[in-house]
């Protein structure tokens, strides 16, 4: 059965599916949340989404990655004009931490 060494442990298809579903659910909640606000505010940064995104970026590297996917999906799912910068911040945190850990493990 195919796997990736993603968290240092074997990750099989079932948990990956759970992660995707949690991600989609986060998207959905974010969409629902952002409909409270008027459409298309480009400059504004939502504090709640920012916190959720950073938290998600951290949590994706721990055994709680299923919840992390939920938190990082939250800003991505928000309606257009919202959540773009927040998501990118969270994603870059995740990528940097992942690279650091990969470098630490291999080298």
């Amino acid at each position: 059965m195919p796997y990736i060494t993603y968290l240092g442990e074997r990750m099989d298809l079932f948990y990956f599916n759970l992660t995707i579903i949690s991600f989609i659910f986060g998207n959905f909640v974010g969409l629902e949340y952002s409909y409270r606000y008027p459409p298309y505010h480009e400059k504004r940064i939502d504090k709640f989404a920012l916190i959720s995104s950073i938290l998600g970026g951290f949590l994706l590297l721990t055994p709680l990655y299923i919840i992390g996917a939920f938190f990082i999906g939250f800003p991505l799912g928000m309606r257009s004009g919202y959540g773009r910068i927040e998501f990118l911040i969270g994603l870059s945190i995740f990528v940097i931490l992942y690279l650091i850990r990969w470098w630490y493990v291999t080298g």
């Binding site: 989609i24 998207n27 959905f28 969409l31 991505l76 928000m78 257009s80 004009g81």
Partner: peptide, 11 residues
Amino acid sequence: RPGPPIIQYLL
């Protein structure tokens, strides 16, 4: 265009 969220197909 702004476009729909990426879960639109699923929805």
